[in-house]
Design a protein around this nucleic acid. Structure first.
Lengths: 348, 348
DNA sequence: TTGTATGCGTTATCAC
DNA sequence: GTGATAACGCATACAA
């Protein structure tokens, strides 16, 4: 049974009811309208009333209810960010950069997480942003049901980031790393004379975008006449087995779908006593801190997270302001990070 | 100049006005109340009307306006997460775990970022959460003005996470890693016979919590009669100089304030040709993926991010539900991660 | 079972 | 310059 009202905790554990602009007006001895005008800094309020209102605001510690505000006012300068939060540093970097860009443009950004949830939970989470009537929404999570995207995009400006569009929704703008850029990793190992290469991948349905890149790489390898294979890695994949098998098959280079997998491969190689890069060259993908750190020494490809955030912010901003933007999207270039995990193919 | 209305983009670039429950009611041929009841799945609506309303909802693609809803209904099951987004994986892990915990308890979580902003921008961002009338707020950012915390905590349940409370706000609950746990890192190097140790740190005002831990470590080293020093690292610190200086002074172990700094130290040592751990032992702090990866091999201390998130979720939840919780907070234990960067002190 | 009327907190329109 | 009053979209007490 809770203590009675006004039990003596002067503190933060029993918040009183939030005060409204009405309370402010009453305390200041003016009408709601005047209080509102003073609050918004609008012209047409006498200095003395303005002072009284401001004092009342301070005294009551009044914070305007954004919820009620955006009901009547047409300026909900809030952007929604639907963000996957995984262990990957990509989303963190993206969020940080996007936040800065949005801030520069005068938006507040509200983010909700898309876990590795079910489609339904994902839908619900995204709908929070819609229900909040954010001015625009940026979706930064690999897989969202195209129908959901379509529905949301029909009512609020929406931009996809980190994926190269959805075939079903050709009109939804997107920002992604250029899938052609996977080729610089391929070239990197080809330059070292490797003639048998493995690519790791997650199942296509988990990341269609990744597969576009991988197919580009396959094609590139094929035209160069280099033997290659794609191996699927799942959370339960035994990397030791996999790496041992690759080496047994004379594969001398493995290009991983992300940096985590690359580290896993390196660890497996260490356990197996396989020399890196002497016997096996390994490269990652994403290349964001800390994976690109000199002390880690991983060869990888740095995805242009900050540039993507900036482009996405620009796109939503323009959509929100009513401009039309080109359908399709922009593919941004990243950069190769050369570490110590790739080297000349073994001569054996 | 924008195209006229109804220019032929069947798509998502020109969102029409969102439909309201009124539209639903009209289309279904019932009153707003009935539509509302049907929407909420409340009893007391005839099957045929329910069906009509549901169909209208589908047809109009109606998404209830949470904003308007929470104005009248007292069920704002939303939690605010005020999160620093830095390169550190800590916040990402925390956010992910917190999101899961909050979800389990039936909350939606909205997060806004506290950049490395000014106090004022920070205040504004936090006020977004307050203005949205979130049911509770979790603050996960190292430095927020105590007065701000006090003001916010006075109106909405608030929990600090990642910092060991604020002296000015003793009644605000908090969750943090146990500062005593830094000692296991100290013990780790002491067990290896090191007799001259360096601790890295950021300036105290940037992270009071970190300093509590460092002071514990200093005390511990002092009682063991071990020579030690604290060196401040800033973004512009030249780590090569610093490491060279330490080695010149016969320091044989350096315990870093976080894993990034540890990697920087390792890289500097590599440049200087200093053997790790032969000539210098290095340990980090935080120990979250990917820093704790076997392939990185860093000795570090894994902060209990998930447990902290769970504890924080439990605290806010209880506060939101009107329970009183103990003031003060909980200090959670993490665990030592032994890598290859620490070893016996050089015998020289 | 259904509809009408009222209120939530704010801004905007209009008289004064 | 100021203050009623309507409106925003929704939920709900109350009446029918």
């Amino acid at each position: 049974m809770p203590a009675g009202p006004d039990s003596r905790d002067g503190g933060s554990q029993s918040p009183r009811k939030a005060s409204t602009i009405r309370d402010v007006a009453t305390l200041a001895g003016v009408s709601k309208s005047t209080a509102s005008r003073a609050l918004l800094g609008q012209p047409g309020v006498s200095p003395e009333n303005l002072e009284k209102v401001q004092q009342a605001i301070r005294q009551l510690d009044f914070v305007p209810n954004r919820i009620a505000r955006s009901l009547s006012a047409p300026s909900p300068a809030m952007l929604g960010l639907f963000l996957r939060n995984s262990d990957s540093p990509f989303y963190g970097h993206l969020a940080k950069a996007f936040d800065g860009e949005a801030d520069r443009r005068g938006y507040e950004v509200l983010s909700v997480a898309s876990g590795d949830q079910t489609d339904d939970a994902n839908y619900q989470s995204l709908m929070v942003l819609v229900g909040l009537r954010t001015a625009g929404i940026v979706v930064a999570t690999p897989v969202v049901d195209p129908l959901t995207i379509r529905r949301v995009a029909a009512r609020v400006p929406l931009v996809l980031v980190g994926q190269i569009g959805q075939p079903d929704n050709p009109e939804v703008p997107f920002v992604a790393p250029d899938p052609k850029d996977g080729l610089v990793l391929v070239d990197q190992v080809l330059a070292h004379g490797h003639t048998s290469v493995a690519l790791t991948a997650v199942p296509p349905e988990q990341s269609p975008t990744q597969w576009v890149r991988i197919e580009e790489m396959q094609r590139h390898l094929a035209t160069r006449g280099v033997r290659h294979r794609v191996v699927t890695v799942q959370p339960d994949t035994d990397l030791s087995d996999l790496v041992a098998g690759l080496v047994r098959d004379r594969v001398t280079a493995v290009l991983c779908n992300n940096d985590f997998v690359a580290l896993d491969v390196l660890a497996a190689a260490a356990r197996l006593g396989i020399a890196i890069p002497g016997e096996l060259s390994v490269a990652g993908f994403d290349g964001l801190p800390p994976f690109d750190h000199e002390a880690v020494g991983l060869t990888t490809y740095r995805v242009p997270a900050a540039a993507m955030a900036a482009a996405a912010a620009d796109l939503v901003d323009r959509l929100v302001r009513g401009e039309t933007v080109d359908a399709g999207g922009s593919l941004l270039p990243g950069e190769l990070v050369v570490g110590r995990t790739t080297g000349p193919a073994p001569t054996s």
